[in-house]
Lab assay of single mutants.
Amino acid sequence: AQASVVANQLIPINTYLTLVMMRSEVVTPVGIPAEDIPRLVSMQVNRAVPLGTTLMPDMVKGYA
């Protein structure tokens, strides 16, 4: 199964992502692939992302 990117903490709206904020986990539904974690660093979330939430492409500015 493919691992997705999951929030490792509460990520406030407009926060620039860093490695410590994200982890990879096999979840349903599938979100942003874990292999894209390096690409996500320094990208901004466009909403608050609670701890344990799967990151979806529409949550990250400029990802989709």
Rank of each mutant, 00 (worst) to 15 (best):
A1C: 03
A1P: 15
Q2N: 13
Q2P: 15
Q2V: 11
Q2C: 05
Q2I: 09
Q2Y: 13
A3T: 11
A3F: 09
A3D: 14
A3M: 14
A3L: 12
S4V: 02
S4H: 01
S4T: 05
V5I: 12
V5W: 02
V5T: 12
V5H: 01
V5A: 13
V5K: 01
V6Y: 02
V6C: 03
V6K: 05
A7H: 01
A7Q: 01
A7K: 00
A7D: 01
A7L: 03
N8A: 13
N8H: 11
N8L: 11
N8S: 12
N8Q: 08
N8D: 15
N8V: 11
N8P: 02
Q9T: 15
Q9F: 12
Q9G: 06
L10W: 12
L10N: 12
L10A: 11
L10D: 15
L10P: 14
L10R: 06
I11T: 01
I11Q: 01
I11D: 00
I11L: 08
I11F: 02
P12N: 08
P12W: 11
P12L: 14
I13A: 15
I13N: 07
I13L: 14
I13D: 09
N14V: 02
N14K: 07
N14C: 04
N14I: 02
N14H: 14
T15Y: 13
T15Q: 12
T15N: 05
T15R: 04
Y16M: 15
Y16N: 06
Y16R: 09
Y16K: 06
Y16Q: 08
Y16V: 14
Y16H: 14
Y16T: 12
L17G: 00
L17F: 03
L17P: 02
T18A: 11
T18M: 14
T18Q: 12
T18W: 03
L19H: 12
L19V: 14
L19E: 06
L19A: 15
L19I: 15
L19Q: 08
V20I: 11
V20E: 08
V20D: 07
V20G: 15
V20L: 10
M21V: 05
M21D: 05
M21A: 05
M22D: 00
M22S: 00
M22F: 10
R23D: 04
R23G: 08
R23E: 03
R23A: 05
R23L: 08
S24W: 11
S24G: 13
S24N: 13
S24E: 07
S24H: 09
S24T: 08
E25Y: 07
E25H: 06
E25W: 05
E25N: 08
E25K: 04
E25V: 05
V26H: 07
V26S: 09
V26P: 07
V26M: 12
V26R: 03
V26Q: 13
V27S: 05
V27E: 02
V27I: 10
V27Q: 13
T28M: 09
T28Q: 14
T28D: 15
T28N: 09
T28E: 14
T28I: 10
P29D: 07
P29N: 05
V30H: 09
V30G: 10
G31R: 03
G31H: 02
G31A: 05
G31C: 03
G31Y: 02
G31D: 01
I32A: 03
I32L: 08
I32F: 03
I32Y: 02
I32E: 00
I32M: 04
P33G: 08
P33H: 12
P33N: 15
P33M: 09
A34I: 06
A34N: 06
A34Q: 12
A34V: 10
A34M: 07
E35Y: 06
E35H: 12
E35A: 09
E35K: 04
D36S: 12
D36M: 09
D36H: 10
D36E: 08
D36G: 06
D36V: 07
I37N: 01
I37W: 02
I37G: 05
I37F: 04
I37T: 07
P38W: 08
P38T: 09
P38C: 05
R39T: 09
R39N: 12
R39G: 10
L40S: 00
L40E: 00
L40C: 03
L40W: 01
V41Y: 11
V41W: 04
V41C: 04
S42H: 15
S42G: 08
S42K: 12
S42F: 10
S42I: 04
M43G: 05
M43R: 05
Q44R: 10
Q44W: 06
Q44S: 09
Q44A: 11
V45P: 03
V45K: 00
N46G: 12
N46S: 14
N46D: 11
N46I: 14
N46Q: 15
N46T: 13
N46L: 12
R47Y: 15
R47N: 09
R47K: 15
A48G: 08
A48L: 11
A48P: 06
A48S: 14
A48R: 08
V49I: 15
V49L: 13
V49M: 04
V49D: 01
V49S: 02
V49E: 01
V49P: 01
V49F: 02
P50M: 09
P50G: 07
P50A: 14
P50D: 11
P50N: 08
L51R: 07
L51Q: 15
L51S: 11
L51H: 10
L51A: 10
G52P: 00
G52W: 07
G52C: 04
G52L: 06
G52A: 11
G52D: 15
G52S: 11
T53E: 09
T53C: 04
T53K: 08
T53Y: 15
T53R: 12
T54D: 01
T54K: 04
T54I: 11
T54V: 10
L55K: 00
L55P: 00
L55T: 00
L55F: 13
M56E: 09
M56C: 04
M56F: 11
M56L: 06
M56T: 10
M56W: 08
M56K: 09
P57E: 06
P57Y: 06
P57Q: 10
D58C: 05
D58V: 13
D58H: 10
M59K: 02
M59W: 13
M59N: 06
M59Y: 13
M59F: 08
M59A: 07
M59R: 03
V60E: 00
V60R: 00
V60K: 01
V60H: 00
V60A: 02
K61L: 10
K61A: 15
G62P: 06
G62R: 05
G62Y: 07
G62N: 10
G62Q: 15
G62F: 09
G62H: 11
G62T: 05
Y63C: 03
Y63N: 05
Y63V: 04
Y63A: 03
Y63H: 04
Y63L: 04
Y63T: 04
Y63R: 03
A64I: 12
A64L: 13
A64P: 09
A64D: 13
A64G: 13
A64C: 09
